[in-house]
């Protein structure tokens, strides 16, 4: 009993504070979504009216789909790029250290700066345009900023998040002891069989973690969207911010917040299940 109190006291300023703060914020979001704390003062009581308002808006569903699309593409592409590199750099060789340091460099660049740098490079007057025009590939510069497919945003997310996926995956890949792979080879497993039956199942967790964290981060993106995204669409975060900021609709923003968290949750579950399925299927192949 005394011990429990001691643990409680130790946890209070750290975990305790975090949970109190995040709990209050989360409660506030959910409560406002259901009509409580209505600052406009029109009504103050439990109601589904704000859900009705938001969920019937076309702009909201555009934002929802858009964020889901950006987040899923970014997560999958970042992991798809990071995984083979992590495998390749499993065993150190000359130059591999410099290479992995450079791969991690984007971690040092804040998101807004990254967005600015990309806009600079792809802008009408940017390096890509000048280079391609100079090389004679294009007759004149083209407009690539704020493209309507969101390629710039996905590119930014991948640029920023790939190092993170690389860290997680290379940690998992390097944690596989050499003798385990040697044993598999010794028992007749070729390169591909070793990948499917040993490496893949032993790195599934890291891959799921990377996908989920990148998905959640990209789903909640605001700055890439507002700087490099197409002006005709919102992301969930930018829609939420515009409801709260320019329209003063806190309760509507709360509905978007809850939906964003739901998107994060279901996206996470979906990606985790997908990876599980792929690992299982590949493992079963003879």
């Amino acid at each position: 009993m005394r011990n429990a109190i001691r643990i409680g006291l130790l946890l209070a300023p750290g975990v305790g504070l975090v949970l109190a703060f995040m709990g209050a914020v989360l409660y506030r979001a959910v409560a406002q979504a259901f009509g409580l704390y209505d600052f406009s003062g029109t009504s103050d009581g439990l109601s589904l009216a704000h859900w009705q308002d938001v969920l019937t808006t076309k702009r909201f569903w555009r934002a929802f789909q858009w964020s889901a699309y950006i987040a899923a593409s970014s997560a999958v592409i970042a992991v798809a790029l990071a995984y083979p590199i992590a495998l390749w750099l499993r065993k150190p060789f000359r130059g591999s250290l410099i290479l992995s340091a450079m791969l991690k460099a984007p971690l040092l660049v804040p998101g807004l700066v990254a967005a600015f740098l990309l806009v600079n490079v792809i802008s009408y007057h940017g390096f890509v345009n000048e280079f391609l025009v100079w090389a004679g590939v294009w007759a004149e510069p083209r407009r690539m900023q704020n493209d309507s497919n969101g390629f710039a945003i996905i590119g930014l997310q991948v640029w920023k998040q790939m190092p993170f996926a690389f860290l997680l995956l290379s940690g998992a890949v390097q944690a596989i002891p050499d003798p385990v792979l040697n044993a598999a080879q010794d028992l007749g497993a070729g390169k591909f069989a070793r990948f499917r039956k040993i490496i893949l199942p032993l790195t599934t967790k890291a891959m799921q973690a990377a996908l989920v964290l990148i998905f959640i981060g990209a789903a909640g993106d605001f700055s890439f969207q507002t700087v490099a995204g197409p002006p005709s669409v919102n992301s969930m975060a930018s829609y939420m911010a515009s409801l709260q900021g320019s329209e003063g609709d806190w309760n509507g923003a709360a509905v978007v917040a809850v939906m964003l968290m739901a998107l994060s949750l279901f996206g996470a579950i979906g990606l985790t299940a997908l990876v599980q399925l792929i690992t299982r299927t590949l493992g079963r192949l003879a």
Binding site: V25, R28, A29, I216, G220, A237, W250, M261
Partner: peptide, 14 residues
């Protein structure tokens, strides 16, 4: 894992 803008907006609301 909480989206930054969710934390920010509802902290502001508090």
């Amino acid at each position: 894992i909480m989206p930054g803008f969710v934390t920010a907006i509802f902290f502001a609301s508090l």
